[in-house]
Design a protein around this nucleic acid. Sequence first.
DNA 1: TTTTGAGTTGTTCGA
DNA 2: GTCGAACAACTCAAA
Length: 495
Amino acid sequence: MATQAQEADGQDSAPPDGQGTRPGNGPDDRAPAVMWFRRDLRLHDHPALLAASGSDGVSGPADRPVVPLFVVDPALWGPAGDPRRAWLLRSLRALDETMGGRLVVRRGDPVEVVPAVTREVGAREVHVSADTGPYGRRRDGAVADALGDDVGLVRTGTPYAIGPGTVVNGSGEPYKVFTPFYTAWLRNGWPAPAPGADGITWLQAPGREWPEEPDLGDLRLPEVGETAARQRWEEFRGDGVDDYAERRDLPAEAGTSALSAHLKYGEIHPRTMLADLAALAGDGRRTAGSSADTYRSELAWREFYADVLWHHPRTAREYHRQEYAGMRYDDVTSGEGAALLQAWQQGRTGFPMVDAGMRQLQAEGWMHNRLRMVTASFLVKDLHVEWQHGARWFLRWLRDGDLASNNHGWQWTAGSGTDAAPYFRVFNPVTQGEKFDPTGAYVRRYVPELAHLEGKAAHAPWEAADGYAHGYPERVVDHKAERVEALARLQEIKR
DNA sequence: TTTTGAGTTGTTCGA
DNA sequence: GTCGAACAACTCAAA
């Protein structure tokens, strides 16, 4: 749905990193602006917020009062699982506190709600950080239309260091392989962090339609919000980043930054982190090729997939390499296929690593990256299920669930993605366990039925006399046979 | 235009 | 136990 407004300001096809168009300052320069928060729930390093308040020195009178708005959109809220809902609400609450409880929270379709709020407060500009995903682009185009000619939707910045669509090769084409993208991305560089937005005059408007926070039971989330995000980042870069390359693949250890959900909701911007990493490199304590570089490349993966999705919005749901759509997959709508899918979802496949990962997902709303690969490979290659079923389940439960990273990660595993895994790369869940969880600690933490098995025996209950003494399920498939089957099916579409 | 080297995350088999 | 090769062929990106 390309709208007139999008075409008029070129936002539909041009990279979204630049300044949006804005109407000239009207007769009433004192009119407030609406800051419509979405995935940017922070006050630091926030160009769109600076633009809204006019303190960027370009967008209008400085110290323009700002009406902070969040819209709970049923289209996004509906499919979200409890961890995601809880994280979002807590993040909004943290943001609300930093603005003295003035955050306007409304429920409904943004196409109706945003213009309504704008009219109520007499604003002439609505400021946002650009949403570069397929739904967000459609929605923002429709909102811009609905705002009419007299009110501008001003897009400033994106959730990425470099806006999707910006990094292109010598022929002006997008990159299709990560490594050259990464090289060009580094060469391109990114802006320095924006100055803090202190002293904003928050203007309150009616609307405190907060949804109820779901009951998470035993599930415990970390601290949420901008302050927590910055604290976590401080800890990680002060300490953890040095061991990152070494420990990031060991799920039993806290070797990752655990910042994914903070990034997802924009509680911290990658630009901030990249500037800090550069400062680390500059202080002489780190050398080239260090852990900090490894971490930076992981941030770049986030940007690469956002870039791919920007150029190919349909790949959020469809096969990037379309020949994979013609492969034989097993039906999961009924019968044995449905039962196998459910066993996978509930962590009852009989393969300890797979089950530990799937249970961590529901226990924490998060899964270690290594396990995301192991469990995804199992669903696609061992159970022969289309990746979309797994992607949907992940998006429902992951508190960091991000459309671009999640779905292109799945396509990578399935072999159908950009720069996908070679067809013959089938993860062996047992080998993966012995390699990356050598003590079995990760498996025992999430699978209590295996807690009595010591060391790496936890990865092979079928070899222990009492392996099934506490109700752990038998293996639902024969991995060796299903690997052969997966390779055979891949051969069929290769011809 | 042509050529060349390379491509996130692995497993298995045989020496 | 360790090690290297094979597992396909293709596409990508830069020289």
